[in-house]
Simulated assay, not measured.
Amino acid sequence: MTQNTRTQALSDAGVSIWLDDLSRGRLTSGNLQELVDTKNIVGVTTNPSIFQAAISGAQDYDADIAELAKAGKDVDAVVEKLTTDDVRSAADLFAPVAEATEGQDGRVSIEVDPRLAHETEKTIAQAHRLSEIVDRSNVMIKIPATKEGLPAITEVIGAGISVNVTLIFSVDRYREVIDAYLAGLEKADAAGIDLSTIRSVGSFFVSRFDTEIDARLEKLGGDALELRGKAGVANARVAFGVYLEKFSSERFEKLAAKGARVQRALWASTGVKNPEYADTMYVDQLVASPTVNTMPEKTLDAVADHSELGKALDAEAAQASAADLEKISAAGVDLDDVYAVLEREGVEKFEKAWNELLETVAAQIASA
């Protein structure tokens, strides 16, 4: 089948397009395969909100829930089974992509229980468990970039498990995430693990950053209003500058000589929240190689229809964007507070979605 010319151009520019969604319906209907064949989709990300919407909003899971309920499974076991089954099926669908790209793409991500975001040891344990249950080499385990998540990232990477680090909002935390990844690679190397088998992405959230900062700029008023819609792209561009710095370091070069791969930056939350902004802005303005852009289908469709890619990012663009953040700070926005609020709310939103999913499935178990 023929790929869309605009998504192909993005792919040719070094941006891997992953779909930010998964459901059983996408798998069984052939929709996901169609997106692979026609819109350059080479991976999938999931999160608690995606699973909550998928399982609560469809009948595709009713038979499995009823069967598991009769077997005496509790709600946590049922949800674990449903989600890992879907991820395994998606991983099988993407196996040819993984093989063709030597493991760089064809990746499917599944997140640890969001209620464990501040519990290091339990996060490590569940990352191992999810990896073992899905049992596919192209799965990625998502771990949040909380302070407690950082040592978990190192330990899980050190065990040879590929990791998608999620909920990154600040450039400083992104530096810590990369350091945690490099420490994990060093640990894996010491254990004799083939470093070429380990892959990782750092998921840097974009649109949520604009939403929070725009609200603060609107309260400030005046000239501050001119800065709306600039923070998300600027923050991500500065982060890419950190990526360029860290992965050209002597520390990484030593690991690369042993087969280690870079931890690609992944642009997450790329669906535009403000209807006044161009609906492809978080794609067109964040072209960089190698990166990943994980898109909800609405954004993917917009990109396929009318995307106009901007100039590829480099270190110079990162430095210029740092000036935009300085302007926002000078206008009176406390960026450190923004980072803290977004991380806390990010964890809380995923916890809320997960709890709602558990409640929905518990009700179905009770009526089975």
Score class of each variant (00 low, 15 high):
Lys73Pro: 02
Ala63Tyr: 08
Lys73Arg: 11
Ala63Asn: 13
Glu34Gly: 09
Thr84Met: 03
Thr83Met: 08
Arg26Leu: 15
Ser56Asp: 07
Val44Asn: 01
Ala91Cys: 15
Asn47Gln: 05
Ser29Met: 13
Val44Gln: 03
Gly43Pro: 11
Asp37Gln: 13
Asn31Met: 14
Phe94Cys: 05
Ile41Ser: 09
Gly72Gln: 07
Ala69Pro: 06
Thr45Lys: 07
Gln52Tyr: 10
Asp62Met: 07
Ala54His: 01
Asp74Ile: 04
Asn40Gln: 14
Thr83Lys: 00
Ser56Gly: 10
Asp62Asn: 14
Val75Thr: 11
Ala69Phe: 02
Gln52Ile: 01
Ala58Val: 02
Asn31Glu: 15
Ala91Lys: 04
Val87Tyr: 04
Leu82His: 02
Ile55Met: 02
Ala69Gln: 00
Leu27Lys: 06
Ser49Asp: 07
Ala71Phe: 00
Ala71Val: 00
Val75Leu: 10
Asp86Ser: 04
Pro48Leu: 03
Gly25Ala: 14
Leu93Ser: 04
Leu35Glu: 11
Thr84His: 08
Thr46Glu: 04
Glu80Ser: 13
Thr83Ala: 01
Thr45Tyr: 01
Gln33Ala: 15
Ile50Gly: 09
Asp92Ile: 12
Gly43Val: 09
Gly57Met: 03
Glu67His: 07
Asn40Trp: 07
Lys73Met: 11
Val44Asp: 02
Ile50Asp: 05
Pro48Asn: 04
Asp64Leu: 09
Leu35Val: 10
Gln52Leu: 02
Thr28Gly: 06
Asp92Leu: 14
Asp74Ser: 08
Asp74Lys: 04
Asp76Ile: 06
Ala53Phe: 00
Ile65Ala: 08
Pro48Tyr: 02
Ala71Pro: 04
Ala69Gly: 09
Glu34Phe: 10
Ala77Met: 01
Gly25Pro: 10
Asn47Gly: 03
Glu34Asn: 14
Val36Ile: 15
Ala95Thr: 14
Phe51Gln: 02
Asn31Pro: 03
Pro48Thr: 05
Ser29Asn: 12
Asp60Cys: 00
Val87Lys: 03
Gly25Gln: 13
Gln52Lys: 11
Leu68His: 09
Phe51Glu: 00
Gly30Asp: 11
Ile55Gln: 06
Ala66Gly: 00
Ala69Asp: 05
Ala77Asp: 12
Ala66Trp: 00
Ile50Gln: 06
Leu32Ala: 08
Ala91Gly: 09
Asp76His: 11
Thr46Ile: 08
Thr84Leu: 07
Leu32Cys: 11
Asn31Asp: 15
Tyr61Phe: 06
Arg26Ser: 15
Asn31His: 15
Ser49Ala: 14
Asp76Val: 10
Asp62Glu: 15
Thr46Ala: 05
Asp60Phe: 00
Ala77Glu: 15
Ser49His: 03
Pro48Cys: 00
Ala53Asp: 03
Phe94Ala: 09
Thr83Pro: 01
Thr83Cys: 11
Ala66Val: 05
Ala77Gly: 13
Lys81Gln: 12
Ala69Arg: 06
Ile55Arg: 11
Gln52Asn: 13
Arg88Met: 01
Phe94Pro: 02
Lys73Leu: 06
Arg88Leu: 04
Ala71His: 01
Thr84Tyr: 06
